[in-house]
Structure formats: C-alpha cells, structure tokens
Design a protein around this nucleic acid. Structure first.
Lengths: 256, 256
DNA sequence: TATTGACCCTCACGCGGCGTCAGGGTGCAG
DNA sequence: CTGCACCCTGACGCCGCGTGAGGGTCAATA
C-alpha cells in the first residue's frame, strides 16, 4: 500500500505542511494512520479527498462546510457536483469578463498613445500650442513620454513640405464629407457615414504609419474630446466635435 | 460636483461600508473630503480607483501591494494592466479547467447510473442475484436508489416475453462478434472492432430507451468491472471481460 | 419644537485560515 | 557519532474584514 508523508502529500496537492496539520486538527482531512514516531501517513483515498477539498476551497466555501459536504451520504454526490460545476463556471466567466474589460482599457490606452505620437506634429495643432500640449501629455502619461515625443518629432521632421500638404488636403476632404453628413442631419450612428468614417480611419492609419484598428479608432474618439481637438472641430461647424466623436464610437462598436 | 457617502459608494462598488472604513484607515482609498460632521465624501475619481482596487483584489494581491501599484508613476500603467490581464486570464482558465474535470466526473456518474437502472432487469443478471445486486447498489449509491430500482422494475415488467427474447438474441449476436475479434487476437484498440462496438452501444441505447453517449459508454465500461458482469463475460470466453472493457474505453476515448 | 428613522462616526473584539518560528525527536547516510 | 532532512506539538500573530457598542447628524413629519 502506497503512503505519503506530509511533505509528499503537500507537494502532490500544492498545499503547505501547515495546511495539512490544520486540516487534521479540525478533522477535515485525517491521515490514514499515525506511526509510533507520531508521523502522519496518508493514502490514495486521502489524496483524492484532498483534491476534492481544494476544488471546494477555490469556491471560497468555508472549511467546515466542505467537511459537511464531503461527509454527506453518497446520494448527494451528483447534485453537489452539479452545483459546484455551476459555481466554477460562474467564476470562470467572471474572470473572463474582467479580461475583456482590461483588454478594452489596454486598447484604449494604446490607441491614445499611438495617436499622440503622430498627430501632435501632423499640423493639426498650431505650433505655438505644441509646448503646452507636450506638457499636458507628460503630466498625463508620465515618465517615458518625453522620449517618445522626441522620436515622433524626428520622424515628422523627415517629411517634406509637399508630402505634408498632400496629407492635409486629404484630411480636409475627409472631414468635409463628415461635416456634410452632420449638416444634412444624419444621426452619427447612420451607416451612410461609413464610407467617410473609413476614409478617415485610413487617413489616420497613414499618418501613424501603421493600421488604425477599430479598437484604436474607438480610443481615438476619446482623445478627440481633448479641448484642443474640440476647438478645432467646432471651428469647422458648431456641434461637429460631438457628432464626430459619437460617429467614430458607433462605427468602432459595430466592428464587434 | 457629484459626491457619494460611504453607503452609496459601497453599493455602487459591491463592497461593505466597513471595507471602505478599513481602506481609509490604511490609506488605500481616501475620501475626496471629510465634512465637519466627520462624514466621508467620495468623488468619481475615488470610485474609479476603487474599481481598480477590486480587480487587483480579485487576484489575491495584498492590499498594501495594490496601493503601491496604483500609486506608482503613470508610465507603469499599461505594463501593469497587461500583467493583470494575463493573471486574470490564467484564473479564468483554471476555473474552466475545473469545470471540465467535474463535467467528466458527472458524465461518468450519470453513465453508471443510467446503466444500472436498465440492465439490472434486462436478463443479464440471474434473478437470484438481483436482491444481492440491489443491496450492492444501495450501499454504493445510497438514499434514492431504492426508489429508482422500483421505477426500473416497473418498466421492465411492462415488456412482453417476445420483445425480451428478441433483445437477448440481438445482444448475443453483438457479443459473439466482439468475442470473435478477441479470439482472432485483435488488440482491443483495433478500429476493426468499431462496427461491433457501435452495434453494442446501439443495443445498450435501445435497452435504455435513450441514446448511449460516448461518455456514458465509457462509464459503462467501469461498471462492467463489477464481479457479476466479469463472471458473465468470462463465461463467454476466458479473458474476454478485460478485452471488452478495454475495447469500450478505447472506443469512447477516440470519440473525443 | 420634538420625534423618528436612516445614516454617519469611532472604537474594538474576534474570526477563518493559515505563516512563521521555537524547541525537540526520528531516519538515514557517511 | 555527526549532520542533514524531515517529522512532531505548541503557539503567536497577520490580513481583511464582520459585527456590535455607543453616540452624533440629517431630514421629514406631526
């Protein structure tokens, strides 16, 4: 017959020796037998019971309650398993939901970050506002922001005047198409805006030098709420800033 | 400016007032301000911070460590989120894994249960062994077993002699085909046995009055290790009992 | 104004489930 | 015999609150 000492069982099950002492003390998990040396010796049956204890414990069931469950007559066994299964599934879903929440936050932060890298020097902000905006970014995002600003400044510095003017003209066309939809009274969620929205997204991607994903585009909408961007879009047409932000978000949401 | 009292914030966040007191005491979550009445008043910023605390707490991170993380400079924010995301995903997977483990246990128990309901009275066990077998079932599975035995006895009692004889003849044909494979020296895992195995499974399904799923069929193999069944299969051919059990298990495993 | 019910406060004991350590014994190899 | 790894019991203490005592504040109502 195979037996385990406390340390062996503890390692097999991923618990501490102290835990096994404690469970013996409270009667939750008794050893198979105790030797003359007062050592605890456990068998396969105790190992199996311990594994069942650990599943219940993962569901925050108090130890004494776990003991009551495991010591109940066998006819309850299937019902208990079904109940534990449902609770374990709920926990799995709870954590999966938190993963999705954090994924959205990460995407948003990454979208914001990518936007700030490139648009700052794309001519959207007047040069005299740049120092102020840089201070805002550093204050908001902290430590390595200055290094990234330096990097973006260098990349934009390498674009010639003709290329920059071409990009600005493209952006104006896109924004004008969107503003026209706004003036015609289309709701921001209207799919008739999709061509203009997607043209805008493509423009942003080319300004970034990499694809603007739907998540990043949704994050960009957040950043367009910054006062400097709002001011700029309000100058195109009063009310346009809010319309654009909502339209961008609606589009991003529809991409799943 | 919108403010919340302790109870309002506690309800919004799903924690207790005591928890908020505690977090204030240890400096983890201070109120926005405290009134002359000594009441705590929290703002949106505190609500957001509390939500972040709760995600970290779900990962069993000690409170003082949570404080250190949240109070770190902002440039760490994205890295921390990524790390938490990975840990939350691991937790989700851990619970999902436990769900699968319990599902397998449930399927096995249900398979055994369904088998015992019907085969007991299908003529496989000699009548004089029935009382003994019933005692074994009740001892093994406990409380409601007697009610279920009564139910099955009634159902079998309604099958006429001709129908019963037809089922027995079918079963003999199936078992003979399997025994022939055994005599020819086929390994129990051989796919050449599949037609006979599937015929057997179909027979069991018809005896049950409902489909015998691969899980249930795997569970049935466990139950065929009972001494009464072994004796019966050994009577067909010495060594056949072990062969059959192994073949059934191999087939069930191959169904995924 | 007084009363009442809901909410707020500080203070403090205690619980569940161990982690950690002290002091001492056992088993086994060199 | 010595040294190392493992075992024991006993016991203090920690973390994160739950619970309750005793008392104050706020707002509606009679």
């Amino acid at each position: 017959m195979k037996t385990y000492t406390v340390q062996q069982l503890a390692e097999l099950a991923g618990v501490s020796v102290r835990t096994l002492h404690h469970y013996d003390e409270i009667g939750l998990l008794k050893p198979a037998f105790t030797g003359e040396n007062r050592y605890r010796y456990y068998g396969e049956e105790e190992l199996l019971r311990l594994q069942q204890i650990l599943i219940h414990r993962a569901l925050d069931i108090p130890l004494m309650e776990i003991g009551a469950i495991l010591d109940a007559p066998d006819f309850d066994r299937l019902a208990v398993l079904r109940e534990q299964r449902d609770r374990l599934e709920s926990e799995a879903k709870r954590f999966a939901g938190m993963v999705r929440t954090i994924d959205r936050t990460i995407a948003r932060l990454e979208g914001e970050t990518a936007m700030q890298d490139n648009e700052l020097y794309s001519g959207l902000i007047a040069p005299e506002k740049q120092a102020e905006y840089e201070a805002w970014l550093v204050e908001r995002f902290g430590g390595d922001m200055e290094a990234r600003i330096a990097r973006s400044r260098k990349a934009m510095g390498e674009m010639n005047e003709e290329e920059r003017a071409g990009m600005m003209a493209d952006l104006q066309r896109v924004e004008e198409a969107l503003a026209e939809g706004f003036r015609r009274g289309l709701p921001p969620q209207a799919t008739a805006l999709d061509p203009a929205i997607e043209a805008h997204r493509r423009w942003v991607g080319s300004a970034w030098g990499r694809e603007c994903t739907p998540e990043a585009y949704g994050g960009l909408a957040d950043v367009y709420e910054h006062p400097d961007f709002r001011k700029r879009y309000e100058a195109i047409q009063p009310g346009f800033a809010e319309f654009l932000v909502t339209a961008m978000r609606a589009w991003a949401r529809r991409q799943g």
